[in-house]
């Protein structure tokens, strides 16, 4: 098992009158090569949850295990853990600081004490993986567009060669085109390099399209942990949590109710299209 959370609880401001339970008794296992989507409304505890994966937050109760080892045991190398579990925060472009793109991406590998040549090679590879053109490598990160900055920031984490890549809303504030490109490249990282992906998102459409497992966090607890199809079948319960199923789910349910024999479990537009076409073709025969 790559990552495992055992009975993890986290309380903000413990032992004061402001105490807030952000996580309550979370049990979770993530295996190599998975593409996991994490959804939950604002304040549900999902940001707190992902910061437990790379040891930025210490659980007030319970254990976090990486490759079977408790990360909070004495003398555990947290630095090595953070190389293995890369975390890209929300609006990661706000962390850029170097004078040019390449040097900024080299920050992570440099902290891993790699040789300058190796740092450079890693940085160039990472930048190409996120689809940034070579001509921007020497530009100042502050002269780039929003989407390009985002790519540079993601490359900054990717250059550390993580086994797991956690992304907190990597597409927030991007246009639809930029969103599809970034998510496509993230999928490629999983498919081609076998990197385990944990994607936090607000967009049901995105997680339905890309993730093969979906974790719904509500009030610091895991409400659902299943395939996106199985989770979205509970769309009424999701609504009660302030979330919603993809719009296509609503359309399919409506069509079914009105008598068209479609598959109500279709969660992506292309699946829905196929199902509707099949249903329409079936109807013409009669």
């Amino acid at each position: 098992m790559l990552l495992e959370l055992k009975n993890v609880s986290y309380t903000y401001n413990k032992d004061t009158s402001f105490a807030v339970n952000a996580l309550e008794n979370i049990n979770l296992q993530i295996s190599e090569g998975e593409f996991v989507g994490v959804i939950g409304h604002t304040g549900s505890g999902k940001s707190t949850l992902i910061q437990h994966f790379n040891g930025l937050m210490k659980p007030t109760d319970g254990q976090v295990l990486y490759m079977g080892e408790d990360i909070w045991q004495e003398k555990y190398d947290l630095q090595a853990l953070r190389s293995g579990v890369g975390l890209v925060f929300q609006y990661p472009e706000n962390q850029l600081f170097e004078t040019d793109v390449l040097t900024d991406v080299m920050f992570g590998p440099k902290n891993q004490k790699l040789s300058p040549e190796e740092c450079r090679e890693r940085a160039v590879n990472a930048l190409r993986r996120v689809g940034l053109k070579d001509k921007y490598f020497t530009a100042s990160p502050f002269d780039l567009s929003g989407g390009q900055k985002r790519r540079v920031a993601i490359a900054g984490v990717l250059a550390m060669n993580p086994k797991v890549l956690i992304l907190d809303e990597p597409t927030a504030g991007l246009d639809p085109h930029g969103r599809d490109e970034i998510l496509g490249q993230i999928r490629k990282l999983r498919d081609e390099m076998g990197i385990t992906i944990i994607l936090v998102s607000h967009s049901m459409e995105d997680v339905a399209e890309y993730a093969d497992r979906l974790i719904v966090v509500n009030d610091g607890k895991i409400a659902f942990d299943d395939t996106p199809k199985a989770v979205f079948a509970h769309y009424k319960e999701l609504e009660a949590m302030g979330l919603a199923a993809p719009q296509i789910t609503y359309l399919m349910h409506e069509l079914k109710e009105r008598g068209l024999d479609v598959d109500i479990n279709a969660v992506t537009v292309s699946e829905a299209k196929k199902s509707i076409e099949k249903a329409l073709a079936g109807r013409k025969k009669h």
């Binding site: 930025l56 925060f89 962390q95 891993q112």
Partner: peptide, 16 residues
């Protein structure tokens, strides 16, 4: 809050 956030982001990139 911003300091806290940037600090965490850089720690995640191996900063010390």
């Amino acid at each position: 809050e911003e300091t806290d956030k940037i600090m965490k982001a850089q720690i995640a990139r191996g900063a010390d």
